[in-house]
């Protein structure tokens, strides 16, 4: 088209652009599966929810469940632990949340949280009897010294947030579905 001095689109230009556009869309469509295969697969997603039986957990006891490859802390809180958590002023909290937002109403004794420190993802101590529970009678992360209270709220140390609450619901008084 060197001889064509007029700036005028031709049928050839149209074909050129549409061919290019088809090649780009086709190329992107072909590449997408190669990228998307990296995302969590069906077998991983199939394990994205679990049912946890709480009936065997005595008051004051804690149990760790495995959900999505991560530990989930379930604590059967004693009345004194609940009172302790409720008594805390919101002004003392780095990530303010009243105790009522940390549990499901009517099931205040059950605290269900993802057991990973919100700093860099270590597993805090405090689940087993005899383990260090930190300065606030909850959990203590040994990696960089974060202290969590009896509602799993961050009280001291480098972690920015409270322990994360997973999505869960009560199927009955002693059976929960996490995820």
């Amino acid at each position: 088209m060197a001889t064509n001095t007029k700036e005028e689109s031709t049928r050839r230009d149209f074909l050129f652009v549409t061919t290019g556009a088809f090649a780009a869309v086709g190329g992107a469509a072909a590449v997408w599966p190669l990228i998307d295969q990296m995302n969590p697969d069906a077998s991983v997603k199939a394990l994205a929810s679990i049912e946890a039986d709480l009936s065997a957990i005595e008051e004051g006891q804690s149990v760790t469940f495995k959900w999505r490859g991560q530990p989930v802390f379930v604590r059967h809180r004693t009345p004194s632990e609940i009172e302790e958590a409720k008594a805390v002023s919101l002004d003392d909290l780095k990530d303010p949340a009243p105790d009522s937002e940390r549990v499901i109403a009517g099931h205040e004794q059950w605290l269900v949280m993802v057991g990973l420190c919100t700093h860099l993802g270590c597993v805090p101590l405090g689940q087993k009897p005899g383990e260090e529970k930190g300065d606030f009678n909850g959990w203590f992360c040994p990696c960089h010294g974060s202290h969590y209270d009896s509602a799993g709220r961050i009280r001291k140390g480098p972690a920015p947030k409270n322990l994360v609450l997973p999505p869960f619901e009560f199927l009955s008084d002693t059976l929960i579905k996490i995820g």
Partner: peptide, 12 residues
């Protein structure tokens, strides 16, 4: 999750 291929570091 894309990098790990799951919700935590695991077999993928």
């Amino acid at each position: 999750e894309f990098l790990r291929g799951g919700f935590a570091v695991d077999n993928p």
